[in-house]
Amino acid sequence: MTTDASFMASNTPLDPSRTPADTSLETVSTADNALQASAANSLLASPNTLMLNDLLNDKDTPWQVHNCKIIDKSVTQEQLLPFIYHYDALSDELKQLHPLTGNLLKQFQTPMSAQQAAQLLGLEAALVPTPWMVKVTGTLVMFCERLQIALRLKFTNTAKDYDPVYTTTAEKAVEASMQDWNFYGDIFVLNKGNKPLVMTLDHDWIEIPQLAEYQLLPGEYGLAALALLEESKSHITNLEDAINQRLI
């Protein structure tokens, strides 16, 4: 695994306020910076250079899904929820009969079961539904065989500890919760192709070296890639199929 420092290539422009150097070392350094800037410009302008941003946006890039795994699938009705969740699940008629005043407001964030919420409201237990609490996490690899580029990713149904879902069965709860799944966390990129690969971010960029191992996409570049993946996941058709097959 390479470090972030070795992973990143800088395109920082030369400081225009710097005065000409009097020593040979400073002269050599200035020349080196100029050569690096020239090489960077050539890399970005080269028609052979691939842009990861474009590949993630391009509907015609033939991404395949490999090694999709469910790491955790928890579906329970035993988890406690803040009182406000149970209150929000009430019918409008019951909310009008039991407005949030006095002691109820004090219990706003108190974790409790649906049965305890019913007791607090003075209702029959059947009138306060008990949700299924769903948490799904998994991993997968998106791979473009033609370009020999891959991304190792993590996905989940929710960024919270659990997603409360009001359905009749656990199976329907998982299905409903996974309607809005998303990628999260670190992104690792594998570039085994024969073309340079870069990713841009505003006025900056990084080069992703051609190596036989995955490399962490650092900092804001990882966040930008997550945003691009969220925009693109609907047209990568086998993403949904691969995840659903593992959930069954």
Rank of each mutant, 00 (worst) to 15 (best):
V141D: 00
V141N: 01
C144W: 00
S91M: 09
L147C: 01
E93P: 01
E171C: 06
V174I: 10
H98R: 12
A114L: 08
L123A: 12
W132P: 04
R146M: 12
Q116V: 13
A173F: 04
L147S: 03
S91K: 13
Q115R: 14
P164N: 03
Q96V: 14
D161H: 09
F83V: 06
D88W: 05
L140E: 01
T158D: 01
A117I: 12
A159C: 05
V141Y: 00
D163C: 14
A170P: 04
V136Y: 01
L104I: 11
G122M: 09
Q115T: 14
H98D: 06
K160M: 09
E171P: 02
W132V: 06
L140R: 05
Y87L: 11
A89F: 07
A89M: 07
F83M: 04
T110G: 01
L151H: 00
Q107E: 11
T156G: 07
S177M: 08
K154G: 07
T158G: 03
T101E: 11
A170Q: 03
E175T: 13
T158N: 03
T130S: 15
L97Y: 06
Q116A: 15
M178I: 05
K172S: 10
I84Y: 14
N103D: 14
Y87K: 12
I84D: 08
A117F: 03
